[in-house]
């Protein structure tokens, strides 16, 4: 669903950060900022909490570890037709280290990538929700919902703090 947004266009990340600080001072809520590359420190300015992706990674790691270890234990030690290799122990734990490790890494990596795609709503053919095609090139855009911008002077703040252009537009974000 398209919505009305106040969009401020910038061509440099330093002016952008400065303008965001000014907007924050007015207490206006910024919807999102778009940029061609990651900008350090912008998360704090926008008040984003640290992503919990690393927690997910740990959980996936535990799942992968248990699955791989259980698989080997079951197949070599518990199943009815376990193989007797020269009378050696069925459960030779040190031998299970490599595959357990690979299993942990595999499940964690795949799980993480799917989680990343899921939370960002990325999938093959997804429509890009961006204010301007040049945000993947050299344009930095601050988007504020029109209803949030109402009654504040964010438009003039942005134009007096280095914005190339400020306009109100209906876009899908």
């Amino acid at each position: 669903m398209s919505q009305k947004f106040v969009l401020g266009y910038f061509d440099d990340e330093e002016t952008l950060m400065h303008a965001i600080e000014k907007i924050n001072a007015t207490g206006t809520k910024i919807y999102e900022v778009y940029s061609p590359f990651p900008i350090h420190g912008i998360d704090d300015l926008l008040g984003y909490k640290r992503t919990r992706l690393s927690v997910a990674a740990f959980i996936f790691g535990c799942i992968g570890f248990s699955l791989a270890l259980f698989m080997q234990t079951f197949m070599l030690g518990l199943d009815k037709w376990r193989i007797n290799i020269g009378g050696k122990p069925y459960l030779a734990w040190p031998d299970f280290v490599p595959v357990t490790f690979e299993g942990t890494v595999l499940i964690t990596a795949l799980g993480m990538v799917f989680t990343f795609m899921w939370v960002n709503e990325f999938f093959p053919g997804a429509v890009e929700k961006q204010p301007h095609p040049r945000v993947t090139e050299d344009l930095f855009v601050v988007a504020i919902k029109s209803e949030d911008a109402e009654g504040s002077d964010v438009q003039s703040i942005m134009s007096s703090n280095g914005a190339l252009e400020v306009k109100e537009e209906e876009v899908l974000l």
Partner: peptide
């Protein structure tokens, strides 16, 4: 995949 360069996406 619908990449949009948002600060959230970059942070993740």
């Amino acid at each position: 995949f619908g990449w949009n360069g948002s600060a959230k996406a970059w942070s993740r």
